[in-house]
Nucleic acid binder design. Structure first.
Lengths: 242, 242
DNA sequence: CGTGTCGTTGAGCGCTTTCAACCCTGGTGG
DNA sequence: CCACCAGGGTTGAAAGCGCTCAACGACACG
């Protein structure tokens, strides 16, 4: 992990371009600037380790950061895949608790690091920032509960069905194809399946005519049956076409 | 669900006694009061349903509220068991999203309901309340991530081991026995196991000399081996005593 | 003494994992 | 241009773990 030499002016410019700071007060941004640094990470490089005291709030400028909990069998449970403009680390900074996950770069990445102390000071002094952060953390909690719901599905087929359904953003037309937002391996690790099982379930759904897919491009042909599958869940053999 | 007829004075008194409002500004509490009602629920009575727009922030006065996600096979995944002085519902109020879980009374219960609109208004106007809530939601997110970590453990034995370890509160002496904080059935549903499997794993751990238990009273005899089990995870047959 | 709730125990089956080999794609260098 | 390799993904076979179903036991309560 390298500190990239970036002038404050450049840094401010970078920040202004990030979704994360959209609609922020200009002064606020300026007050955070002295605590900001830009980091460069190569693919697979670690940014934080479970149990660490985190020393900064992280916002992804480019690339992707994988947050995951390492498991005893060598596998991992992916918590989140943080993309450009998204952040992580707020909860443990706010509560001053150890980091609950590992954070490593999924690709070569650039990350904005905002010093914990400066962030906390600003949080105390700026009600707007506090409200903004409250919104953010609340949303994150809701998202996490959704993930739990997916993982709690009794069969792997239903897990995949739920995942596909919840993938669809609010205002999208059905019939429209989309791409999986990450490597299949990572998606599998996020919904609590082995890569192989995820692959098999996708194949099965395709074979049954629910979906079509090539690579990470997916097209759902029958949303209603997919819904039904997600909320009914029959054994794999007995699925009729009616 | 009945609205209990309670005078504002009584209500204020009740609120003042709840942990939830500990250290609050007196004026703040007074401003929330007009939006507060007291509800009475019998065991098994529903307070909210997944998908609802929640019309109030809920704080448990007595009894217990089970938050859970219903599953297609009739089972449920318990998200949280809300006890006296604890609250739930903040995230969906703040984000104005549908309730992500069912909430039903686990015992006969009394619940304080604070009207959404009044709560939101106060949240906007009072930085202190916002900060307090930010702390709360952050903690809840961290707790939820811990739950995910437990559920992600590859074997059911490890899940139980992790659960027992994380049960132990910060400043407790080892060697001291404690009681399970809920029905075994609910605990099982929280860590993603069937009641039967949970029972079997406890029995196995007792038989191996890790723990002793009668009813919900548990005594851990060998923390180190328990730790080792949680983070190493060998197949059940091959556990040595060294 | 019946009834309801909670928990334990047993037997059997099926799904998911694991381990393995294999395919496909893109990039790289001779 | 092609051989080679690495990374990502698919597919097959085998085995074990956890679930389901069912019966039973303990306990409290009216």
């Amino acid at each position: 992990m390298n500190y990239s030499p970036v002038s404050p002016a450049q840094l401010q410019d970078t920040m202004a371009r990030l979704n994360y700071f959209e609609g922020w007060d200009k002064d606020q941004l300026a007050r955070l600037l002295p605590g900001a640094k830009q980091l460069s990470l190569e693919k697979r490089e670690a940014l934080a380790t479970k149990g660490d005291r985190i020393e900064a709030l992280f916002i992804v400028i480019s690339g992707q950061i994988r947050l995951f909990i390492p498991l005893s069998n060598g596998a991992e449970r992916v918590i989140s895949l943080v993309e450009r403009g998204e952040s992580f680390g707020e909860p443990c900074i706010i509560r001053d608790e150890p980091c609950p996950y590992n954070a490593i770069a999924g690709k070569d990445s650039h990350v904005l690091a905002i010093d914990t102390l400066i962030y906390r000071r600003e949080l105390k002094q700026s009600p707007l920032l506090a409200e903004h952060t409250l919104n953010l953390v609340s949303q994150r909690l809701l998202d996490t509960l959704r993930d739990i719901e997916i993982c709690a599905q009794p069969s792997s087929l239903q897990r995949v069905a739920h995942y596909l359904i919840h993938l669809q953003p609010a205002g999208a037309t059905p019939e429209q194809d989309f791409r999986l937002p990450a490597l299949k391996r990572d998606i599998a690790a996020k919904i609590g399946l082995s890569q192989e099982t995820f692959s098999r379930m996708l194949a099965f759904m395709a074979q049954q005519g629910f979906i079509r897919f090539t690579g990470s491009q997916v097209q759902v042909d029958d949303w209603t049956r997919l819904q039904r599958l997600a909320s009914a869940g029959c054994p794999m053999e007995v699925i009729g076409k009616n």
